[in-house]
Each structure stands twice: as structure tokens, then as C-alpha cells.
Simulated assay, not measured.
Amino acid sequence: MPVSSRYLNAWEGFWRDAPAEAGAVIWDAEPALTASVHLALLDPYLADPALPVVDVGCGNGTQTRFLAERFGRVLGVDLSTAAVGLARTQHPDGRAEFAQLDATDGPGVRELHARLGDANVYVRGLIHQSEPADRQPVADAIATLVGDRGRAFVVELSASAKAVLAGLAQSPQGPPPKLRPVFEHGLAPAEVVDSAFGELFRTAGLTVLASGELPLFLTEFAPDGSRIDLPSHWLVVGADGAAPQR
């Protein structure tokens, strides 16, 4: 079942209003702090690095473009057509492909898998701000895209990040400028209980091959000039626990 119109409209509004400048969106941190770190964790578990890569929830494509410099074929998909349009505008060289996809749309996800075959999948900060009914379908979509040979790296905010965000929002100066649009558009980050994170993928039929915690860096800074980061946890998942074949 597709996402609710409220959720779709929230994301369309957010990306339609998002500035085009690099780093203007609060989670649009440079790949050296994000995808590069995540690839180092994923790499030992890749069974086939030659598989296409799908960046699910790609937003404006910053991480997708980085992945395209390291893999042969990379496709960024996002629920929001505004996000996909922004990604194509910001990364016009064609190294990465971009397409609209609702990850809760089972037939659409299966059609993508039929076209690409098994894929390695990258997901950063998608499930924690999905509506409750959509979280298992998103995990199921990742399982469909991974298939038998792919692996997925999934990083999400820990539940404790919600208190950090609330503290930022309730500061005497009000929310930091880059955080304000998140709340103004009705998005609700850090909504997944930590214990439910791995279970979503086990229910989808995937095996958790590795897990850990690390800070998720933002593009916003505290009054003292330090970069704001949020607690997050990550998983590498695949169809089975077999050792990578290189």
C-alpha cells in the first residue's frame, strides 16, 4: 500500500522548499563524514561489489553521487519527485541515475528488482522518520532489492536522538535554521524504538551480518561552533550469513 497523502505531501513540500546549495539541508553532510564511513563498514560483507547499488531515500543525491564514483551503476530513488528533480539538477553528469519510487509500493519495488537484478543497497535515515505502518514495508522492499546476493547498509537515528532534537528545538533561540523546516513540514525524526530496528529486517527474511553505533553528522552547528551530531545505529543485512565471496 502506498504511503499516506499526508506523508507524501510533507516530503514534497520539504524538498520543494529546500535550498539548492550543498549542505543547506540539515542531514546533507559531506560524504567524507557519511557514505565514505559507511562504505568502510559495508565493504567486508559485500558478496559481489559488481552488483548495481540502490540508494533508497536518496534526497538530493549527495551520497548517491559519491557512491557512483565507486561502483559501476548507482541508482538513487526517493518518494519525492521534488527531491529527484533536485538530485538531477545538482548532479547532471549522469554518473548516478535518479528515479521516483515509493519504497512501500511492493509492485514498483519488484519491478525495479526485475530490471536491475540483485543489488547492494544503501539506506541512511529513512525508516526512523517513516510512518509506523510503512516501516515493515520499507524493510521488505530492501529485502526484495537485495535478493539472494546483495547486501544492505542501513543507518538510522537511535531513539535517544529524539531528546537531542527536542532540546535543539526548545532552545531559547528556537530551532536552528536548518532544523526548522523539518518541523515546519510535519516530519517526525527518531520515531523507531531501538529494539525494533533489527527485527524489521529479520521479519523481512534478512540476516543481520554486522551492527554497531556511530554518530550521524549534520550540517548544522551549535552556538559554540561545534558540529551537531546525533546518536545512530547501523546494520549490514543480507539474505544469509554466508561469508563474502571475493
Rank of each mutant, 00 (worst) to 15 (best):
G85L: 04
L157S: 04
F197P: 11
A139F: 06
P189T: 09
D105R: 11
P137F: 00
L41M: 09
G106P: 07
D118P: 07
D134N: 09
A18Y: 11
Q129K: 13
P215M: 00
A204C: 02
L218E: 13
A119K: 03
A83Q: 01
S226I: 15
T89M: 04
P19E: 08
S36V: 11
G85P: 05
R88W: 09
G85C: 04
T89P: 04
T144N: 00
A50W: 04
V164A: 15
A141K: 00
G94K: 01
G186W: 11
G186A: 08
R70C: 03
A82K: 13
L126P: 09
E69N: 11
D43T: 12
G225Y: 12
D148F: 03
L235M: 14
P31M: 00
G186L: 10
H91F: 13
N9A: 15
G125C: 12
G72H: 04
F183E: 14
P2T: 06
Y122D: 02
F71V: 12
P177T: 12
P49C: 10
G150A: 01
V123H: 01
L179H: 13
V208F: 13
L33G: 08
P49S: 07
V56D: 00
P44T: 09
G167K: 13
V237F: 01
V3Q: 06
V77H: 07
V146N: 02
P92I: 05
A18K: 10
V138E: 02
A190G: 10
L86S: 02
V138Y: 01
P215L: 00
L116H: 01
A40Q: 08
V208D: 14
G76R: 10
T89E: 05
I142Y: 00
V3R: 04
D93A: 05
V84M: 10
H233M: 01
E213Y: 05
L214M: 07
L157E: 00
I142A: 00
A210Y: 04
F14R: 12
G72A: 02
V182K: 05
A47F: 14
A29P: 15
R151I: 02
E213A: 05
T144M: 02
L230A: 10
S171E: 06
L67Y: 02
P31G: 01
L206I: 04
E184V: 12
L33C: 06
T207I: 08
A47D: 14
A239E: 06
D224F: 15
I26Q: 01
Y7T: 13
A169L: 12
F197D: 04
L41G: 07
E21Q: 13
A210H: 08
F66Q: 06
V109E: 02
P137S: 01
A10P: 15
H128A: 12
D48W: 02
S226L: 15
Q100F: 07
A161I: 12
G76H: 07
G186Y: 08
A222H: 14
